[in-house]
Structure formats: structure tokens, C-alpha cells
Amino acid sequence: MKDPASSSAEPLKWVLQATSNPDATPAKMLVCWLAQEIDPTLTDLDGALVDSRTPLVLLNSLKDAFKHLRREGETGDDRSIAATYYALTIAAAIVNHRMRISRQTDEAIEDALRICWNDESCDLRLRDLCWRAFYALRLGLEKSGR
């Protein structure tokens, strides 16, 4: 059980997170908090997506959470960033685990990946992840003869 006195600082830390980084939009804060809700140890969402040690089961849970936000987000920004991170979790599974965690068609996944890597505001590591997932998907298609 947490000590009430020490943990009453926690809401203040939320405000500090929201005000300390001018680049952290309310929508970006939301996806980061969502990721932490799924895995409280996850402090760097972007880093986790490019890290090959991030377990597939975690990517799957993150994908489900972003999928929900993409559908039910309160604002257009929420839904848009959720769509990006939804695609990124799929990309991470393809690149780092050679697994598809989505029942979307290849074309739909490729379209989503293309949007991410064309987005110049997106972290370069994430754009690279999309690029590699796109190629892995293409190579997979060639191998399977589709």
C-alpha cells in the first residue's frame, strides 16, 4: 500500500510531464500514458518500439490499446496519433519478431506504414522502422508468391 503523503506528489508529476516538454502535445501525452498503463515500466514508448527485446505480447497489448483509441479518441488528434502508433506496433512486430499481429490486408498495412514514414514530424527511428517493415512485408509477399 502506498503512503498517501508521498504519492500525492504523483498528480503533480503528471502536470510537470505535460508542461515540461513543449513538443509533447496532449495527444502524444495520452499515447505515452496509455503505453504506461499497459506496462508501468515502459517509460520510453518510441524506444520500446524500435527495441528488438520488446516482447511480442507487449506489442500486441499496445496495438489493442491504440486500436481502441483510434476508434474512440475524443479528438481528431487523439485518433490520428493512435492510428500512427497502431501501425508502429504492427511494424515493430514485423521487423523485430517477423510476426504479423494484425488481420489487416497487406495493402492496408502498407498504406499505414507509408503514412508514417512520410510524416516528417515523426521520430526518424520510427520512420526507419516503418520503412523496414514495409520491405519485410514486401519480401514476405514475394516469398509466399503472392
Partner: peptide, 25 residues
């Protein structure tokens, strides 16, 4: 429907709470 829905509700409320706290300050 799912844990994902609970997580989404939770972080949306957390954002509202943070905004209310900022408003108070």
C-alpha cells in the same frame, strides 16, 4: 469489452484531471 478499453478510459480521465489541476494553478 477489454483491458484496452479500461486503459483508454483511465488515461483520458488522467488527462482531464491534469488539465483541471493546471486550471486551478
Amino acid at each position: 469489452s477489454s483491458p484496452a478499453q479500461v486503459a483508454n478510459i483511465l488515461v483520458r480521465m488522467k488527462r482531464k484531471f491534469t488539465a483541471a489541476l493546471m486550471q486551478q494553478l
